[in-house]
């Protein structure tokens, strides 16, 4: 049971909202000590694994390109483009991205990701679609702020759903290869093609789950838009002076404490 000390440190540390990097290091040291390592050995093990796992930080190389495009109006253009299509709603855009992500993923392609697709393209398009026909005061209101947060969250969720629940359909995916190597070691030989086939039902169910969530989001957006149009009927209410702006029934909580550490 002592081996779980690191897990306890993580749970308690994150619950107390201590800095996650520090919590991880303390948890690592505790786990290492339990495993009978000396502090120097722990430091070396951490450093070694940190270097081995540099791949997860390579997204940083895309930041200058994304930033440069944003500086010149990429996100504004994504918003503007989507407003020309009346049929485009935040939910439909999110779902279309999910389908595209799933299809390409099933063929072993990693097209997408939060830094390269969601932030610069999908999120501004989705929020842009929700902004259609709203006055600038309405868009600047706390109610819309909260709505736009929920839209972006669903964008992020669709990336994760597309990624996780379709990658095993690809016969040569890392996940299937790992399953095969583990099971082969236990004398239960499996074929990659069989496994890929049985990954399909879960992929379809995940599509259905996201479909329901996107539909709910679109309904939610239409309701919020109606309320926003009532609160901010047209541009003459510029500045959001109407008192009802903050008194809506929106129960979505935003904790300011969490926004920056």
């Amino acid at each position: 049971m002592l081996s779980l000390i690191g897990v306890v440190v993580i749970v308690v540390g994150l619950a107390l909202r201590l800095n996650a990097l520090l919590v991880v290091l303390v948890a690592g040291f505790c786990s290492g000590l339990v495993a009978g390592m000396t502090p120097t050995e722990i430091l070396e093990a951490l450093g070694h694994a940190f270097t081995q796992n540099r791949a997860v930080s390579l997204f940083i190389i895309t930041l200058p390109v994304i930033g440069l495009l944003e500086r010149n109006g990429l996100r504004d253009q994504a918003e503007r483009l989507v407003q020309k299509f009346r049929a485009a709603s935040a939910g439909r855009i999110t779902l279309s991205y999910l389908v595209l992500r799933k299809l390409t993923n099933a063929f072993g392609l990693q097209l997408g990701g939060h830094p390269a697709m969601i932030r610069p393209l999908i999120a501004p398009m989705s929020v842009g679609a929700a902004e259609r026909d709203l006055s600038s005061a309405a868009i600047a209101s706390p109610r819309f702020h909260s709505l736009s947060q929920r839209i972006r969250v669903l964008n992020a969720v669709s990336e994760n759903f597309g990624n996780f629940f379709s990658q095993l359909i690809f016969v040569a995916s890392g996940g299937l290869l790992l399953i095969k190597s583990v099971l082969d070691k236990s004398d239960a030989s499996v074929s990659l093609a069989d496994m890929a086939l049985y990954a399909i039902p879960t992929a379809l169910i995940s599509l259905l789950v996201m479909f329901v969530m996107c539909r709910r989001l679109d309904r939610n957006i239409r309701r919020e838009q109606r309320l926003l149009r009532e609160e901010y009927p047209d541009l003459s209410y510029e500045g959001g002076v109407k008192e009802s702006a903050d008194s809506g029934s929106d129960t979505h909580s935003i904790s300011v404490r969490e926004s920056q550490s």
Partner: peptide, 23 residues
Amino acid sequence: IGWAAILPQFLAALGLLFDQAGV
């Protein structure tokens, strides 16, 4: 993004020590 940018790499390193401790 701030320090969260390097959190995934920290967590990956922690995974190794969890493994050693026999979690």
